[in-house]
């Protein structure tokens, strides 16, 4: 058993778990944050994507012990003061979700994508970068629109602030 301490959504948390416990299970079961999902066993579907130290990672392919001392952001940590993050808002506005199961991973991937590319994103890049996130409901059409929309809006907001 390992005692694991990390920062999750800005709060320091500790938990005791097997060394073999995956980060996603630590988040879901020890911390009760069930927004992060498990959709496959082979690290491909992306329903489990969270941010570790500011970068998107697949929490189903990392042990909780590997993530000890890191800063994790989950889907629950994205909205601030009840306000949806611009990416969350764009997914709603563009109908970028249906059953909602892949959605947390999609949103976390999209936030990371926009962090790296800013408003320079184009459709081909978005589709290429979604390789690790599988959605069975939307046909990706509205997910792509939502990410492009959010990137533009966030780029615009950044410009306005500068």
């Amino acid at each position: 058993m390992a005692k694991v301490t990390m920062t999750v959504n800005g709060r320091q948390v500790s938990g005791v778990c097997d060394d073999r416990t995956l980060l996603v299970h630590f988040i879901r079961e020890n911390l009760g944050l069930t927004g992060t999902h498990v959709g496959c066993d082979t690290s491909q579907c992306g329903a489990c994507v969270v941010h570790m130290d500011g970068q998107s990672v697949k929490s189903c392919s990392i042990l909780a012990a590997q993530a000890a001392s890191s800063a994790i952001t989950t889907i629950e940590g994205l909205a601030q003061n009840g306000e949806l993050h611009p990416v969350q808002a764009a997914f709603k506005a563009h109908h970028g979700l249906q059953c909602g199961f892949c959605t947390p991973g999609m949103v976390m991937t999209a936030v990371d994508m926009i962090r790296r590319h800013g408003s320079n994103l184009d459709e081909a890049t978005v589709r290429f970068e979604l390789e690790g996130n599988i959605c069975r409901c939307t046909g990706y059409h509205n997910i792509v629109k939502a990410i492009l929309g959010a990137a533009q809006e966030m780029g615009g907001a950044r410009q306005a602030a500068e």
Binding site: T34, I75, Q88, L97
Partner: peptide, 21 residues
Amino acid sequence: VARKEDRRFLTGKGRYTDDMS
């Protein structure tokens, strides 16, 4: 109309069977 159910899915508050405890 934008969907009423979206907020819970977008904020990780969906309640799927495996989320039940």
